Amino acid sequence: TEYKLVVVGAGGVGKSALTIQLIQNHFVDEYDPTIEDSYRKQVVIDGETCLLDILDTAGQEEYSAMRDQYMRTGEGFLCVFAINNTKSFEDIHQYREQIKRVKDSDDVPMVLVGNKCDLAARTVESRQAQDLARSYGIPYIETSAKTRQGVEDAFYTLVREIRQH
């Protein structure tokens, strides 16, 4: 089974770092803004072998026109913010609204991801993020692309959301 996953969120929150940590098991430290990259990885989730087709997208506003296209083809979405960047957390709402509009559905598989949880300088409390996820009816997972904490959990949870859909 193949799953088309799309990673969305503001610029600099760590979308590529999360994806590369999942696929290649290493942490990319330097920031190089993405336009669009796709990665494929075969994994076993709950005993089922599946192929993850992951689209890593641009957070930069100037590429926002490309969003409709990949939102149409994606089956599930990782909505990523950084726990030390309140603005990126506030941006999640717009991504969710755009996904709902493009998919013409209120019920699209999504996982809210709070990345950079290895950093002490948190400005978005776990509780705020949990409340937001609960209001959307989606899971919330904290990750660190640096330490790998929660990385597999985030992507695998999204696959489970798609399966249950």
Rank of each mutant, 00 (worst) to 15 (best):
V13W: 00
N84K: 07
G59Q: 03
R67W: 14
S88L: 04
V108F: 12
G74R: 06
H26W: 14
K41G: 11
A65F: 11
S144N: 15
G59N: 01
A17D: 00
I141D: 01
D37V: 00
R40W: 04
D131G: 05
Y140Q: 02
L5I: 15
Y156T: 13
V159T: 05
P139M: 07
V151Y: 13
R148N: 12
V13S: 14
S38V: 15
K41C: 09
I83W: 07
E30W: 02
I141V: 11
Q21T: 10
T86L: 13
A120I: 07
L55A: 05
T123P: 10
Q42S: 12
S105W: 07
H26K: 04
I45H: 05
G137W: 02
S144I: 09
P109A: 07
T57L: 14
Q69R: 10
Q94D: 15
E61N: 15
Q149K: 10
Y156M: 14
F81Q: 03
G47K: 07
L22M: 09
A133T: 04
H165R: 12
V108L: 08
K103M: 12
E152G: 07
D37Y: 00
K116M: 15
E142C: 03
R148F: 14
A145Q: 01
S64T: 08
V13M: 14
E152M: 14
E62A: 15
V113W: 00
D53G: 03
P139Q: 09
T73H: 12
D37C: 00
Q42Y: 08
T19Y: 00
V13F: 03
D56W: 00
H165N: 11
D37L: 00
S16V: 01
F155E: 00
A17C: 05
N25T: 12
Y39Q: 00
T34K: 01
A82S: 14
G74H: 09
S16A: 00
R72N: 11
F77C: 03
L22H: 14
Y70A: 11
A65L: 15
A10E: 07
R134D: 08
S88D: 09
E48D: 11
I45Q: 05
Y156D: 09
I35D: 01
D37H: 00
G14W: 00
E61H: 15
S88G: 08
K116I: 14
Y31G: 00
D153N: 06
V8R: 03
D104L: 10
L78R: 02
E75K: 07
L112Q: 03
D46R: 10
D153Q: 08
A58L: 02
Y63A: 13
T86H: 13
R163C: 10
V108M: 09
G114S: 08
G114C: 10
Q130Y: 11
A58E: 04
Y70W: 06
E30K: 02
K15S: 04
K4I: 02
Q21K: 13
I92L: 13
Q21L: 05
M66I: 13
Q128V: 09
D29G: 08
V102H: 10
F89D: 02
T57S: 11
V28T: 07
C79L: 14
R72K: 09
K87G: 11
R101W: 04
T34C: 00
V8W: 09
Q24M: 08
Q98P: 01
D106P: 09
S64H: 13
D107L: 09
S38G: 06
Y31W: 02
A17H: 02
V108C: 06
L52S: 03
A82N: 15
S135Q: 09
D29A: 06
L119E: 15
R67F: 14
K4L: 04
A145I: 03
I99F: 07
P109Y: 05
C79P: 01
V102I: 13
H165D: 14
I54N: 02
L119P: 10
K116R: 15
I138D: 02
H93E: 15
R101H: 08
H165W: 08
M66R: 13
T1H: 10
D106M: 10
Y39I: 00
Y70D: 15
D53W: 03
S16C: 00
Q21G: 13
M71W: 15
A58S: 14
R96D: 01
Q21E: 07
D56G: 01
L158P: 01
I99H: 02
Q60L: 14
R101E: 05
V124A: 11
D91R: 15
H93Y: 10
G150S: 12
Y70I: 15
K103E: 04
L5E: 01
F81A: 07
K146C: 14
T86W: 07
E97Q: 14
A17T: 05
Q98T: 14
T123R: 08
K100Q: 12
G74I: 14
V108T: 06
R122A: 11
N25L: 06
V159C: 05
G14L: 01
A10G: 10
K41R: 11
K41Q: 09
V8H: 05
I83K: 12
T147H: 12
I99R: 03
Q21W: 06
T19K: 02
G14E: 00
L52Y: 09
M110Q: 01
D106A: 12
C79Q: 03
A145D: 00
F77M: 04
C79A: 08
T49F: 05
R163T: 08
A65T: 12
R127S: 11
E48V: 09
R96M: 15
G11Q: 12
G150C: 10
G137K: 06
K4W: 02
L22C: 14
C50S: 07
E61L: 15
H165G: 11
L22I: 07
I162F: 07
Q24T: 14
E62T: 15
I45N: 09
L51C: 10
V6F: 07
G11K: 15
V13D: 04
C117R: 07
A17M: 05
D91P: 04
R122N: 13
K116W: 14
E48M: 10
R122E: 13
E142D: 06
Q42W: 06
N115S: 14
T73F: 12
L132E: 05
G11W: 12
T143Y: 02
A129Y: 07
A133M: 04
C117A: 12
K100V: 09
A121S: 11
V43I: 14
G76E: 02
D56I: 00
L52V: 14
N25K: 14
V151Q: 08
M71A: 08
P139S: 06
T147V: 08
I138K: 02
I23C: 06
A129H: 04
G12I: 12
H165I: 13
D46W: 04
V102R: 06
I23Q: 07
Y95R: 03
R67P: 15
I23R: 02
S38I: 07
E90F: 09
Q24G: 15
G11A: 13
S144Q: 13
Y3F: 10
A58V: 03
A120K: 08
R101L: 06
Q24Y: 03
I83R: 08
I54D: 00
V108Y: 08
K4A: 09
I99Q: 02
Y39E: 00
I141A: 06
K103Y: 08
R67A: 14
E48K: 07
S105M: 12
E30L: 04
I162M: 13
V7C: 12
Y136A: 07
A133L: 04
V7T: 06
N84R: 06
A120G: 12
S88P: 04
A82E: 14
D56L: 01
L119S: 15
D53I: 02
L112G: 01
E48T: 12
Y39G: 00
A65N: 13
E161F: 10
L78I: 12
I162C: 05
V102D: 07
D131R: 08
Q98H: 13
V44G: 07
P139K: 06
R122Q: 12
D107V: 12
T86Q: 13
F89M: 11
V124Q: 10
K15N: 01
H165S: 12
V159Q: 02
R40Q: 04
V111Y: 04
R101C: 09
L158W: 05
L55N: 10
A82K: 11
V44A: 07
D104C: 13
G114V: 06
E90P: 06
T57C: 10
I20K: 01
Q24C: 13
E97K: 12
G12N: 15
V108G: 03
I162K: 05
E142F: 03
Y31D: 02
A82L: 02
I92N: 03
D53N: 04
A82H: 12
T1E: 06
G59T: 03
K146S: 15
S126A: 10
V102S: 08
D107K: 09
Y3E: 02
I138W: 06
L132I: 08
E36L: 03
N84F: 05
G12A: 12
R160G: 08
R134Q: 10
H165C: 12
P109T: 06
G14F: 00
K146M: 13
E75W: 07
P139D: 10
I99T: 03
L18R: 01
V111K: 01
V43A: 10
D32V: 03
F155Y: 08
D56T: 02
V159F: 07
R163G: 09
